[in-house]
């Protein structure tokens, strides 16, 4: 997909630029863009490493388990059919905690583990997502991050007066997205069940 988007961006730019007489501006923009990519990466290096380092401590000290217990009431509500102490539930809770802490290195393997466990306990047809799998993936695409480190790094690099100012709006915003995602998933689940009955 990115293949066509990227090619489209460049080809369209050159065609439109030729038509609007901005072809020299486009050449400059291409060179400048490459330079900005490198400066952006350099500013990201520092803060990304800082958070990755801290998150590695979280993983080793077991602090992630504390967040997992905090999340349990929520997961009980979202996945009522999965037993609390099951390996599937454990993987789900750990994945959600890792996402919350912005530990993407840990969140993905835990998420894949959870999918694997969900596959074991579901009686779905092969190759078709179960209700719980679909719900779990929706939650992962709308996850809340306590410290959105990447965007803070970008803001800091651009000389923001208060790079952290956006944290609370981000919490509110991702929480609304999560609620809508979960409600939509529950809605589609029930709709599917009613269709089966009729």
């Amino acid at each position: 997909m990115m293949n066509y988007i990227w090619a489209g961006l460049i080809l369209i730019s050159i065609v439109v630029g030729t038509l609007t007489g901005r072809i020299d501006a486009i050449t400059n923009a291409a060179i400048q863009g490459a330079g900005t990519a490198v400066t952006t990466a350099i500013t990201l290096l520092g803060i990304m490493s800082l958070w990755s380092g801290l998150m590695n401590i979280v993983q080793q000290s077991g602090l992630i388990k504390f967040f997992a217990t905090l999340l349990q009431p929520l997961t009980k509500l979202i996945f009522p059919k999965i037993p609390q102490k099951s390996p599937a539930m454990n993987a789900i809770v750990m994945n959600m905690s890792a996402n919350l802490l912005g530990m993407s290195n840990a969140a993905t393997p835990l998420g894949l583990l959870a999918m694997n466990e969900l596959a074991k306990i579901s009686n779905r047809r092969l190759g078709v997502a179960s209700d719980d799998m679909a719900m779990f993936v929706v939650i992962n695409t709308a996850s809340i991050q306590l410290i959105p480190a990447t965007i803070i790094a970008i803001r800091q690099a651009a000389g923001s007066a208060n790079p952290y100012q956006v944290i609370i709006p981000i919490w509110i915003c991702s929480l609304s997205a999560l609620i809508v995602g979960v409600c939509a998933a529950k809605f589609f689940q029930n709709m599917g069940r009613n269709l089966w009955k009729s």
């Binding site: 993905t108 998420g111 894949l112 999918m115 694997n116 969900l118 596959a119 092969l126 190759g127 078709v128 997502a129 799998m133 679909a134 779990f136 993936v137 929706v138 992962n140 695409t141 709308a142 915003c173 991702s174 609304s176 997205a177 999560l178 809508v180 995602g181 939509a184 998933a185 589609f188 599917g192």
Partner: peptide, 27 residues
């Protein structure tokens, strides 16, 4: 979506895309 579903060989994700995009739109 791609990473999670392909890891366990799911090709029919049913309503996952719809629900996930609704969440994105909300955000």
């Amino acid at each position: 979506l791609a990473v999670y579903f392909s890891s366990i060989g799911v090709h029919d994700s049913r309503w996952t895309v719809k629900a996930a995009l609704l969440a994105d739109l909300t955000g």
